[in-house]
Design a binder for these strands. Sequence first.
DNA 1: TAAAAACTTTGCAGTCTCTGCAAAGTTTGC
DNA 2: GCAAACTTTGCAGAGACTGCAAAGTTTTTA
Lengths: 224, 224
Amino acid sequence: MNRDHKRQQTRRALIRAALRLTDERGADRVTVDEISEAAGVSPRTFFNYFATKEDALVGDPLEGCADPRELLLAAPPGPALAAVEAALAPAVRQIQDDRELWLLRLRVMMNNPQLLPRLAAGAATAEQEMTAAIAERLRLAAGHPYPPVLAAVTGAVLRVALMRWAADVQDQVLEGTSLAEHVHEALGMLAAGLPDPVTGWPSGVSPDPGGTPDDQRDPTTRNR
Amino acid sequence: MNRDHKRQQTRRALIRAALRLTDERGADRVTVDEISEAAGVSPRTFFNYFATKEDALVGDPLEGCADPRELLLAAPPGPALAAVEAALAPAVRQIQDDRELWLLRLRVMMNNPQLLPRLAAGAATAEQEMTAAIAERLRLAAGHPYPPVLAAVTGAVLRVALMRWAADVQDQVLEGTSLAEHVHEALGMLAAGLPDPVTGWPSGVSPDPGGTPDDQRDPTTRNR
DNA sequence: TAAAAACTTTGCAGTCTCTGCAAAGTTTGC
DNA sequence: GCAAACTTTGCAGAGACTGCAAAGTTTTTA
């Protein structure tokens, strides 16, 4: 049997076993030994596939997707936020294609909050790459705040969209909003400057056009 | 000697020992036994103070600050994003007051990326509280996307601001920007809708009536 | 102030995660 | 069919973390 294929199969078996057992009993009532046994491999083999027990649970939303750098640079010319949305699209599509698995995974995460940080963990690497790619696309100098802010913020938005998508399904909303729609909706809020949804007021932090750093009179700054 | 005071002292000794040793050798070359010894307590005592080794390293930016709920509800009436900035102010002030410790901590984090996720971890709880507080302040229905998006996004911004502030100092920028200024600058970008800093183009995701307060038809809210 | 109550520290024994290494087993290319 | 390349496995061991009960310290009470 094909080597790569077999590896993928073992990998998936481990992930599924880990998720199923954790879903049934909670994260700290499942051992690596049990997961491996359920997947039909030795415990030692588990660690050939995953560096930590939690890695098998959390997974990587971007796994198998092209390098974000390429996607971002390949995105049609236009505003950066739109390009980021385009770059995220393959990941979103992939998650929707593996719907069952991701819903299980997200349910497990919501029931085991210790895992939430790890989701951000995978994001940490992706975020760094994203930051670099944005800076490159816009040809901004290394110290410019825009790329890291945009990368962090879109990462946060993706995470929230995932959770809301999963919560919709959990709550039996039969024809719920698609993940892509959740992402788009949240990015739309960002693009609009997070206006207050009740009053429609603009968000009201002085927009300080990134260029003019006349922050000297900011009242929160005078000390130190 | 006063009991509380002694506890705080032990706690700080453990944190300092953990940070110093990790700074010298890297996170995986330091054991709990060594940290405890350096702090003058038994290894068992370490775990009376921190649930994990990493907890001693990461700390909590909001530790000792008032409940974000109260801060947010106490903030002057006005746009939500401005209220969030006001709510963040005490945490920012506290970090600047403990400048030395936080700079060491952030340097350690930048040199030991395994720790970055944990920073988001503490944020996870704070983020939930923030979400609830925002929803309460704006009297939004439970399923509305605005509170979780705003909470996640401001958390991300705070994290980036912290890192940039620390990086400034690391890079010997003597009269660097204050943390509060970094936060304000990043929030300003959000408020402006993340316009492309090169072209000044608006961010260009169709803003999707998140602003118009006809929330009754919000698709995510219809149920429950 | 002495005794009781409340709390903290510690040692110990044990479970679990995770690693390096080398032997055994499998797949692939020639 | 054979050698190279890769994967699985067992084993031994370091280190994180927990529950428990004994010992030590601080605070309260009478």
